[in-house]
Amino acid sequence: MKKYFAAVICIAAAFVFCSCAVGEAAGSSKNTGVQNGGYYFESGAGKIYINEEADTVLARLGEPSGGTYEAVSCAFEGKEIFYYYDGFTIQTYKKNGKKYIYTINLEDDTVKTAEGIKLGDSLTTVTDKYGTHYALSGDTYAYVKDNMKLTFIIQNDRVMSIKYWLITD
């Protein structure tokens, strides 16, 4: 009997302390793998990659002309910050004390993607530059590359929205 009790405790402890977790404990689910790959956006201050460390990028870009907006998560620690620059918005997220680029949204036709697409262009212009290997959902054409995606919302044959995203879990 004593052996049994000892065995139960050992098995339970082994189960509990086993590190093959189903997943991380409840928390934010953004991907933390920092990258400098995928489609990038190029501003006057150089190339900006999704999920690269934001501080150096923001320092290069200078003070955002349209200000910033901080969106604190409903329950989790950390916040997402929107930096409103002329023609585009950068959204960052925080992980382990560091900020990373989460999204880049092109706001008007004064800016374009590194491949030359801007708001108002046609679907053909987009597919000429990016090919036809997109995933289509509604009016959104998504090009996935290296854990990020570049999406175009195209309505009435006009690009209405261009956004770079980090692919999250």
């Binding site: 349209g66 907006y69 929107f82 409103y84 509604g138 009016d139």
Partner: peptide, 12 residues
């Protein structure tokens, strides 16, 4: 509130 968050275009 010092800056109003911008509205993004949605697909649907």
């Amino acid at each position: 509130v010092t800056t109003m968050p911008k509205t993004e275009i949605l697909d649907n």
